[in-house]
Design a protein around this nucleic acid. Sequence first.
RNA 1: UGGGGAGUCGUCUAGUGGCAGGACGACGGACUCUGGAUCCGUUAGCGGAGGUUCGAAUCCUCCCUCCCCAACCA
Length: 562
Amino acid sequence: MPEERTLDFIRSIVEEDLRTGKYDGRVHTRFPPEPNGYLHIGHAKAINLNFSIAEEYGGLCNLRFDDTNPCMEEEEYVDSIMEDIHWLGFDWGDRLYYASDYFGKLYDYAVQLIEMGKAYVCDLSPEEIREYRGSLTEPGRNSPYRDRDVEENLDLFARMRAGEFPDGSRTLRARIDMAASNMNMRDPVMYRILHATHHRTGDEWCIYPMYDFTHCLSDSIERITHSNCSIEFEDHRALYDWFLDELGVYHPQQIEFARLNLTRTVLSKRKLKRLVEEGHVESWDDPRMPTLAGLRRRGYTPEAIREFLRRVGVAKTPTTIEIELLEHCLREDLNARAQRVMAVLRPLRLVIENYPEGRVEEVEAINNPEDSSAGTRKLPFSRELFVERTDFREDPPKKWFRLAPGREVRLKHGYLVTCNDVVRDPSSGEVVELRCEYDPESRGGEAPDGRKVRGTLHWVSAPHAVDAEVRLFDHLLLEEPPEGVEETDFENMINPDSREALSGCKLEPGLGDAEPGTICQFMRQGYFCADPADSREGESVWNRSVSLRDTWAKIEKSQSRG
RNA sequence: UGGGGAGUCGUCUAGUGGCAGGACGACGGACUCUGGAUCCGUUAGCGGAGGUUCGAAUCCUCCCUCCCCAACCA
């Protein structure tokens, strides 16, 4: 039974507009990032919405960099943003634009508004502007420069552009209503003086247009039909409409939807930047980061992210999605596609005493039980193996199916082995080796007498194993604030153990030269991605994308609770 | 206390005057050469109070709660 999907409210609007011929049957969206940081999964929601709507309705979606603040923006971010959008599977064709492409046109529009008496040059300082603006409950006061005549405004604005005035000394403001209950309408600043070098226009301009003035007109110039933005711009829509109406130009419609929030992580550029700068993570593409670059390095696939966004949907209700849903989507995607391999993260030597010394057999292993076309591979099996240290207990609890003294288990694809004895480190008493015997008749893992063996373990042949570093990640934020600490700041919530690096891990031989970015399922453990940045010759580095669901951990947890 | 938004299982999301459904999570079971996957089941919700109506999550009124807005950021 295919899942019935009803249209989200934005698609409903689009369909209605198509039906009424509002934009001559066109659908044209845009994704307008500011190049001042890396894209995160919240942006992916907007990307997916805008590009998908265009796709679904035979329309177009532009990529437009909203680069009106030269102090914040950098070329590095432009490149990463384009890479991330492509990675997600979307393309803007030849429609790559920059708001800075429109600086000339925007200037002309501003002049036009001045001529109409709808804009004026204001000499108030930033502090004074704030004072004059009033408060949420009190109306603002008119600037003393509000009634300058058109000629003077034109002259002053030209001289602002010519660089005659220092930064912050004057602004161009829209002449609307200082008593408006919507603060955005209290004569908003349209242009500020900024003697700063712009990443594209260099030093051509020393005045830069503000977001509200730029955005609506950029949409208009590109003949956008549906200008989808996040909910905090709802109050700005009046201004968006005001500029376009006053200028009498093509008028797209702004539609606001709720941005994405996720539990156990942060999704604001400011906070992400702090995580990087304060060293809580290593970089913007640290696998713990919810940036697209981080998720990619972690092993998230575009398919998983897009499926997640599809399930999340689009609405106006502010929501916080549990990160478990994202993880579920990744498992679902990788379960179907990832090759199964064996990797021992915390090796414990296992010697099969009755297995001939020097003998090596090749056993056949299924690559992916979910995908018969994935085929099989050969694995070396020998007298000395590594198994997972956590798969052995000297005093096994109830329902323990794994290794313990006297217990028989199956070595996946290999033989049944029984633990006879342990070897200890004489000084510490720690178990350093298991002495076992195998059933020579059980090759492949089936007992000849049909006896049932519940436990199946992963293993690697000791002489054939390749070394690796494996990094296990936990959520960036704690679930609960630490004892005695108020959840005042996200800083108090940062998980100090979000990363654990294990070295000396033992991988099956085929993984020695895995391509960076390769994603595998380490059987019984989780999905892991070969790190593209840190892997090196002779020792690959793997990031855990997400663990497998661990039913035993749950059983044990409930046992310990009594 | 001004304006703009939003309230449906724990978390998301359908339902738009006619049996409140789905997903994730949690819990239980079946199956299993991954304690994976898969399958089955259980759990649990219309913010509140009135009103209209044969019938209200849906329409009306009032109330409550939460989010956003006072950058020369976007």
